[in-house]
Design a protein around this nucleic acid. Structure first.
Lengths: 149, 149
DNA sequence: ATTAATTCCTTGCGTTCGCAACTAATTTGG
DNA sequence: CCAAATTAGTTGCGAACGCAAGGAATTAAT
């Protein structure tokens, strides 16, 4: 009996659901243990590091990281408390705020980055071929694009 | 300049990370709205529905769903409160407890199941080809297996 | 057999995050 | 212009989950 198409997609969904949870827990645990930095902090640092002037608007961050506005506020609160980012006013729209990397934030990112990448390779990349990685990136990228709109 | 292998995997990982979050939020929202049932409840009902005697040990559930023991206890607490499952003693090992589907739980699963599957198709399956689904299922299945051990 | 180590589950506690409600700033329509 | 609608961000609140600790049953070791 051939597999129904829906079964193949259900399997993909279930794998993704549980692999994500397990992977995230592992990576977050490693990062927290070695650098006292939860995974979402790293994701923020990464985005800010590559952004112009190393700063981004709260809303943009929330969209990219799939956080609600309130979640983003609290996340940046904690990172600012820890000295990794600071809030800056937006001159062109006085409702808006930037989250901007501090020097400390840059330093912490450069410190944690390589180790974190190694963790991803160890727990994820190691088990995925080049072609599989492309397929996953393409397919889930499409899924994500649709959900954001 | 050809892409470094690590970049391809990083892209796959980032897609998975954010697609999962967005997808889970959407599906959970739909399920909660229509059936007053968070997504983890559905996952429990699904496993129990297919299990022998429609019951499973707490530990087995936690492993399958990537929950810690305490998380599992609380989850089953809430579902028992809602009348979807009940706890049963394990005769062969008096430390262990079963979570067993109630008739109400069976009914609610049969009710919510089709709609939930439709949501997965709508937000996920729709954007993924048969072959891609297989690749995702295989690759992330391997990742998950490694992380569980 | 008795003690030690392990396993299964639960509970106290703290953290994180989303929703709804709110304030302030900007844009839109009349 | 000015009022209404929209948008950016923050806050109160509650729900969910993980960690550490603990209690009870089982298994292992001497």
């Amino acid at each position: 009996m051939p597999k129904k198409p829906d079964d193949r997609r259900m399997r993909a969904w279930e794998s993704m659901l549980f692999a994500h949870t397990a992977l995230l827990r592992q990576l977050d645990h490693d990062l927290a243990e070695q650098f006292d930095m939860p995974l979402p902090w790293y994701e923020v640092l990464l985005l800010l590091y590559r952004a112009p002037c190393r700063r981004m608007r709260m809303q943009e961050l929330g969209e990219r990281l799939v956080f609600t506005p309130s979640g983003m506020t609290r996340l940046i609160d904690r990172m600012a408390e820890a000295g990794l980012v600071r809030r800056e006013e937006c001159p062109s729209d006085r409702r808006g705020k930037f989250a901007a990397l501090t020097d400390e934030g840059v330093a912490r990112f450069r410190e944690a980055g390589p180790v974190h990448l190694k963790g991803i390779q160890e727990h994820f990349g190691r088990h995925v071929s080049d072609d599989e990685a492309d397929v996953i990136g393409d397919a889930l990228g499409r899924v994500l694009d649709r959900l954001r709109s």
